[in-house]
Nucleic acid binder design. Structure first.
Lengths: 184, 184
DNA sequence: GTCTATAGAAGGATAGAC
DNA sequence: GTCTATCCTTCTATAGAC
């Protein structure tokens, strides 16, 4: 619920009153559960949303017959969700990450931890498909970066063109990596 | 100046009072130059910064001996600027784009126009290097997406690892595309 | 312990002095 | 026309009623 508001309006753009109103909760309850105020609430939302999104990735990926299909399914799913939610439901972390990167160290570290957890989740799955550890990590970073960048472009343009382009090229890179080093 | 504040603290995170203070200007001057208030100021900053960043890309790209080197130089330059500015000076648009995508239609369109102008700037340069128009556009979108996503990860992690990974993979994709369709 | 009411600061915007 | 002073709202946070 709070994550939804942060995703839609950003961290600084969402007020605590707005949050308790949306949750039909009394104002004091925020400071009961989060004595550290908005920052502590923000950190909890970041870490919880990051964990949920990691599990979503793992679920989709592990349900696929192979790594390549898993990646394809994930990008296709991201595009589908964007369309269905009028481009609201994208990455729950990226907006906050950019907002706080240079202004709130606690929250910046939380977003960095989340991205790292995604990379750490994807890398071994790529390694299992046949990549050495270093390549798997680099491709995992590349995958997350392409996904995040596509989210930015798709939300701005209200189009899934960027997600489809990113998905195709990540697919292509993965195919090349799995085929071995520079066979041309 | 204002663009610097938006980049650092975001659109909602930057106050008009903060802006006039930083510019040592009287408060009323904002509404003299921008009768539409913060929104009109934001739109001007988005379009102006977008234009400047486009020119930066074009300058770097056109100074390179070929398209591949141009792309490499641009990613290397982005990583260098991130390091030199303690990860503050990244994309001037992305933070605002995510903040306003679902809350301010005027500014969302402005960010979409900027991204489209970057794609429209990159595509013909890739086409000139030897790609058909459709492939050139798709790779231009992919290039911008990879760059934006890398900015998100780099700022969060305070590391250029993602920018380097993205640059290498965009390079690889471009090499493959220039070599022709599926030679394997 | 739960919640309301309010404090104190900062937000955007405007009216009016000069 | 330029700028200052102020308006009203909203922000986060807290004090204290119940």
């Amino acid at each position: 619920m709070t994550a939804e508001l942060f995703r839609r309006y950003g961290y600084t753009g969402t007020g605590l009153k707005q949050i308790v109103t949306a949750a039909s909760a009394p104002f004091g309850s925020i400071y009961h559960h989060f004595p550290g105020g908005k920052e502590q609430l923000g950190e909890a939302v970041i870490r919880r949303s990051g964990q949920m999104y990691l599990e979503l990735f793992e679920t989709i990926f592990d349900a696929a017959p192979d790594a390549l299909t898993g990646v394809d399914d994930f990008f296709a799913g991201a595009a589908e969700v964007l369309r269905q939610t009028d481009y609201v439901d994208a990455c729950p972390i990226a907006t906050i990450a950019l907002e706080v990167a240079s202004s709130n160290e606690t929250l910046r570290v939380a977003t960095a931890d989340v991205f790292e957890s995604w990379i750490a989740g994807a890398a071994p799955r790529l390694a299992r498909a046949g990549l050495d550890a270093a390549t798997a990590r680099e491709l995992a970073i590349f995958l997350v970066a392409a996904l995040e960048g596509a989210f930015v472009l798709c939300r701005a343009a209200k189009s899934t063109e960027a997600m489809e382009a990113a998905g195709r090229r990540v697919h292509e890179v993965l195919v090349a990596a799995l085929a071995g080093p520079e066979p041309r």
